[in-house]
Design a protein around this nucleic acid. Sequence first.
DNA 1: CTGAAAGCGCTTACAG
DNA 2: CTGAAAGCGCTTACAG
Lengths: 337, 337
Amino acid sequence: MLKRKDSPTLEDVARAARVSTATISRSINEPDKVASETRDRIAAIIEELGYTPNFGGRVLASNRSNTVGAVIPTMANAMFASGLQVFQEVLSGASITLLVASSSYNAQTELEQIKSLVAHGADGLLLIGSARPVETTRFLEIRKIPYVIAWCYQHNDARFFAGFDNAKAADEITTEVLNKGHRQIAMIAGHSKQNDRSKNRISGVCTGIKNYGQGAELLSVIETEYSLETGGDAFEELMNKQTKPTAIICGNDVLAAGVIIRAKQLGIDIPGQVSVTGFDDIALASAVSPALTTVRVPQLEMGKAAAELLLKLLAKEKPHSTELQTLIIHRDSLAPP
Amino acid sequence: MLKRKDSPTLEDVARAARVSTATISRSINEPDKVASETRDRIAAIIEELGYTPNFGGRVLASNRSNTVGAVIPTMANAMFASGLQVFQEVLSGASITLLVASSSYNAQTELEQIKSLVAHGADGLLLIGSARPVETTRFLEIRKIPYVIAWCYQHNDARFFAGFDNAKAADEITTEVLNKGHRQIAMIAGHSKQNDRSKNRISGVCTGIKNYGQGAELLSVIETEYSLETGGDAFEELMNKQTKPTAIICGNDVLAAGVIIRAKQLGIDIPGQVSVTGFDDIALASAVSPALTTVRVPQLEMGKAAAELLLKLLAKEKPHSTELQTLIIHRDSLAPP
DNA sequence: CTGAAAGCGCTTACAG
DNA sequence: CTGAAAGCGCTTACAG
């Protein structure tokens, strides 16, 4: 059990300044309503005492918190970071504080973090992806918590999205690979269980291949954790099979970079012997050699759009979801078979 | 001005369950003290109403928050992420919630985030680096906020560190470079103004070169932002000088990766024409080609040590700072001139 | 095992 | 421009 340190309270400040707590409160929140001399005296004392308003008391009394929360799957890679940065910047412009928590790609943890954030006074939430247990959805609904979903977009859905169509994007890169002449395809994807982005990317690849016809075949899909190591392992597994793919479509850049690195170690030439594509276009994608042909995800735009959506939601307006576009970035890891 | 949604309160639950608020409160916080039937009934109603305790009320009444905050310079690269992840895991084990905010490497923003976190009830803080304005230090002191500093270590300092000696680490990699036979050295570093880690890495390189003697020279130090692009730019700048370095020591891996990528574009062979070293050993370091010889920073250990330190601090124990060691990782970007 | 009631630190009509 | 006082949603001795 942790004890809070004995922080100075409004009353301490009031006593030192020889005014009422009401005046201190005003001097902080509505300075114009306080005589400038009083205000200066108060400011000095606040500084001296290191006073910060107790957030709990403030929220309780004002019924207003000016903070929103974000729950992202992981902080452990750059994937969500830059979007979040923009999200935060836009919110700062509206004097809103952002609190961040991470779920480790786990639905139960996500719910806990959501509850914690809400308990901490979050007026609204940014969530990643659309698939979550009813338990979570119910909580969000019952509590009427405004939230926006980023990193995916769903038509005919009443929720608010700032994202893109993962399936469509995956379909497009698949078609690109097919157009280069590849027919024997494999995919290395993230676990799709509680991750709709991964699931949709997989289904996008399936669709792309099915619709293409002309003997195009999806040899296998390996689902794994997002890391260089596991990406490399999956690659080895694919290359040890009877029928080897001529192109491997990866569910994200980390996986694809893992393939590239492992291929170099194994002496397999990319794209000479096998082509590889990524997804997301993080820094790693252009750093690796050969540089990854990948799908650029509109991170910054999503962050911005999400913030604007949430701001409107908080202002009780009814905004429209915004669908962003992805873009195929042509680099060196994809070539004809 | 945001209005909080009309959340159910303890009283709503109490009314529905036909017991007092005290009983509800106990049933949540000290279930053992409540009859199991009562408890079950209450649990059902809480679930149905989507009730979450109002954090403000709780903190106010109990004088206890069970949350700590972390302010990191940036979420935009993997640098701090994995350490933070471990930090969070250890804290979770002690039922403590972690709130994260970022400062964008700006001291003023850092202070604001610190205040915000404290106002939100943070009982303790994780901060990165030791250099901060007196204003910030004063606030921390006056409010007697327990905090631990990660990513650096200072002897003879009363504060609590979970980190390593940046200067020493930089000195070591410098000596390594020198031992390979290089004499004309240049450094590309992060801005050192409000960043003691960068400053110490620079001074470590200076020390290393000075102590080595034997004609070793530090041609120039370019300070820049941490990005692939700026790293590449700095590299070009160095290669356009009259006297070119034979080895470039970089203040972090992103900068070094930027050098590698740009060198490839310029047709400059690394390490054939110039050697390059990194710092941090993030994923990028081994993904790039040639892979970076770099300094591995004990991220996970720092996260763990920092959490343990903070936990002790919160328990009013007086712990000892823990100094972690760095390790030079030999890969392919450093060779004799 | 349960309840009545005080009090945590704020804000905000309402007066003046 | 300033103050007295009620009330926000909780927890916690204190009784029973």
